[in-house]
């Protein structure tokens, strides 16, 4: 219990620090996006001053940070500089799309990763080099290329699935597979390395000596690798649920990643800040869950007190 409490407090600290750093970094730099935009549109000094005052940009920096953190505690992320839309509403609208895509991709990644990792570590025949190549390519190829190829092959040539947009079940198959492949490669690499280590551990040699079938051995070994696989999976979850800018761009899907890219391109600071904070929160939360799961799977990781 104490270990969990300590981890929670650590996570809260990291979250608070992330929020303050993000705010300071985006606000402390000379020339905010709003002023820049108003000057370009030819607004008078009075208008600019009034607009800055209404957004609280003329306050001292410390007051601004305190105000932002206080708003955060109430669940208020500020408003977009461009259209005055609350950042929270924009996030709420984008979240369902990202959550479905990330959840499916994570499922593909976990199943595919364990399969391909096991194949890369344990098979003897021609499967092994194929599995290793799949991992190497998955880790090296940019998502933009894999996504593009997937659209060319499955949407344009074979015409099996729609290549862009969102809505039906068919729309999510390609993006989820493309994203999932990348996660599968990452999880597969970790799985293969962990299996490799476990198979030379004395208890597994002993188990083999007792005459266990290779299938039973694999179950044993995978059980021992579970904490490692869980940690790798939660790391991927942190990345995926934080929005998947590239995939959403390729497949023209709405979502958190898209929101962030659009905001960054237009220098909409509060929006960038809000989305980034969501990403940081998800990643911290996923790591926390991963630690808790690993501890429950591996007695050695539990705090002995």
């Amino acid at each position: 219990m104490r270990a969990i409490a300590r981890a929670l407090i650590d996570a809260l600290w990291a979250g608070l620090l992330a929020a303050s750093l993000l705010f300071l970094a985006l606000r402390a730099l000379p020339g905010d996006g709003l002023t820049h935009q108003l000057i370009e549109s030819g607004a008078s000094d009075d208008v600019i001053q009034a607009r800055r005052a209404s957004l609280g940009l003329d306050q001292p920096l410390v007051t601004q940070v305190a105000g932002y953190l206080a708003g955060l505690a109430r669940g208020d992320l500020g408003v977009s500089l461009l259209d005055g839309r609350p950042v929270r509403d924009a996030l709420y609208d984008a979240l369902p799309h990202t959550l479905t895509l990330a959840g499916l991709a994570l499922g593909v990644g976990l199943v595919g990763g364990i399969t391909v990792g096991t194949a890369a570590a344990r098979t003897q025949n021609a499967v092994r080099p194929v599995a290793r190549l799949a991992i190497a390519v998955g880790l090296s190829a940019p998502t933009a290329l894999i996504g593009t190829l997937a659209i060319v092959v499955f949407a344009l040539w074979l015409d099996w699935l729609p290549g862009s947009g969102a809505g039906t079940i068919g729309h999510i198959v390609l993006p989820a597979s493309v994203l999932g492949w990348h996660s599968a490669a990452a999880i597969g690499q970790v799985t293969a390395a962990a299996l490799h280590d476990v198979y030379s551990a004395p208890y597994l040699i002993a188990a083999r000596g007792r005459g266990l079938s290779s299938r039973r051995l694999l179950v044993h070994a995978l059980r021992a690798c579970a904490p490692t696989i869980v940690t790798a999976t939660m790391l991927q979850a942190g990345f995926l649920f934080g929005g998947t800018a590239i995939t959403e761009a390729i497949f023209a899907r709405p979502g958190v990643g898209r929101l962030l890219v659009d905001a960054a391109l237009r220098q909409d600071y509060p929006m960038v800040q809000g989305v980034a904070l969501w990403c940081a929160g998800v990643a911290i939360g996923a790591a926390l869950i991963g630690d808790a799961l690993s501890a429950s799977l591996d007695p050695r990781l539990r705090d002995v007190e």
Partner: peptide, 11 residues
Amino acid sequence: LALPPLVFGLI
């Protein structure tokens, strides 16, 4: 490290 690489990069 809590920020996904691409998100941090975009910031």
